[in-house]
Amino acid sequence: MTNPNALLHRRDVVNELLRDRGDILVVAGLGAPNWDVSAAGDHANNFPLWGAMGAAAMMGLGLALAQPKRKVLVITGDGEMLMGIGSLATIAVEKPANLTIAVLDNERFGETGMQKTHTASGVDLAGMALAAGIRTSCTVRTMEQVSEIRDLVHQGKGTVFALMKINPEALVFTLPPADGVILTTRFRQSVLGDEALYN
């Protein structure tokens, strides 16, 4: 905090984003963002992805459109966001007020040996989101800014894109349930009630 150039720690960022989470709905991208969200506490209102790289932001859009009264937070990585980069254009056009996309940017493909992603060479995801038309788009380097993003999630007053510059540290995995049917059913039951169990 005293050194403005120090990189944030990913689990501090995620713990702050999910502080007093209330009834927000969370989609976590595959790999470390999934483990980070799970380390903050497994929850029925989390949908942690174990695959489908590139899906996270668009799942957030479909969910935000289906549940306009709920706040939706997508937490994903830079590699995952780059694979679904066109989603930023699609989401910018749709402008869901209740969707925040937080990208944990360690500039690495963390699960495959810490190879550099495009962001390590200067590709600016926050700039791309802004240019796509997501007007609240910023690069986050301090925990104070993380708290501001956390508050924006709960306000739900417009699409938010936040690029969190984080330390490329490899942490212990915290695994949520892996079965897609379990994750889907418990999420739908939590959001929609028991009627989600019936056709």
């Binding site: 668009m58 479909g62 969910l63 459109l65 549940q67």
Partner: peptide, 8 residues
């Protein structure tokens, strides 16, 4: 898939 999670 997101829509389905949200009931649509």
């Amino acid at each position: 898939a997101g829509a389905w999670l949200g009931g649509q």
